[in-house]
């Protein structure tokens, strides 16, 4: 069964169509990548899927159920998890606490038990901490566990966000440029991590600028330009598509004109 399916999604800001009539599907274990020039509407699309923006038209189906515009925290409890292009880290907490926060749905319980430090509260917190430490080890941050999150490098923060998103044990994972700002080695590690997560049966929707990464790991690629889907298919197919080449060349020409 299709895990995540988006049908005719669209939104306009001040009369300008940021995303128009975009549809796509992600199955368990699949990695679907969304590519396109800057301003194509990739992050806007992500924000609609994850409930941050209310779409003007179309719908989002999660496991066949309509979840369009549902609050992000409800989507989280239904198995959707995401990372952000412009990091959203809890800067006021340690690296470990950031990862533990990802276990919120598993560790939350009666407030009174938390206020009084009852055994049930301690048990929940301990389980979450153990899980968080394991995840930090998985993304190579176990030695930074007690550091303030704000003191980490950009690449490390990207991995911390992935760890936090994985803590939810998501069915669908939305990754917004997970390799941005990472060096070649880090990109390779993230690449491998994403492939592992997909292999465990998670449906992954990926926005990424690193074309090599996209072509290497994607099972399916969707190309957006100016808010519309202009092509989709297997990575090799898409990279030969004249419309795609034109969109990318067009944006390059524009970049030259700017400079």
């Amino acid at each position: 069964m299709t895990l995540l399916s988006i049908e005719g999604l669209g939104i306009a800001f001040g009369g300008i169509k940021a995303v128009h009539d975009v549809s796509l599907k992600v199955d368990p274990g699949e990695i679907v990548s969304i590519i396109g020039p800057n301003g194509a509407g990739k992050t806007t699309l992500f924000n609609m899927i994850s409930g941050i923006y209310q779409p003007d038209s179309g719908c989002v189906l999660l496991e066949g159920e309509d979840v369009t515009g549902m609050a992000p925290f409800r989507l989280a409890s239904r198995g959707m998890s995401r990372t952000f292009q412009n990091l959203q880290i809890f800067q006021n907490m340690t690296v470990l606490e950031n990862a533990i926060a990802g276990f919120h749905l598993q560790e939350r319980g009666a407030v009174l038990a938390d206020l009084l430090h009852l055994p049930s509260s301690r048990r929940r917190a301990r389980a979450a901490e153990a899980g968080a430490r394991a995840l930090l080890a998985r993304v190579g941050l176990e030695r930074a566990a007690d550091r303030e999150a704000g003191s980490l490098s950009y690449g490390s923060l990207k991995r911390l966000e992935i760890a936090r998103a994985l803590a939810l044990r998501p069915k669908v994972l939305l990754l917004d440029e997970p390799a941005a700002g990472c060096n070649a080695v880090e990109t390779e590690e993230i690449d491998q991590l994403i492939a592992e997560v997909a292999a465990s049966g998670v449906a992954i929707l990926l926005v990424e600028h690193d074309m090599k990464l996209v072509m290497r790991i994607s099972s399916h690629v969707v190309v957006l330009d100016q808010g519309e889907k202009i092509a989709e298919g297997a990575p090799a197919e898409v990279s030969r598509d004249p419309a795609v080449i034109a969109a990318y060349l067009g944006s390059e020409e524009a970049a030259h004109a700017d400079g």
Binding site: P72, R82, F90, A101, L105, L168
Partner: peptide, 9 residues
């Protein structure tokens, strides 16, 4: 971060 808090549920 309210937005990140929401996304972890």
């Amino acid at each position: 971060s309210e937005i990140a808090a929401q996304t972890v549920g």
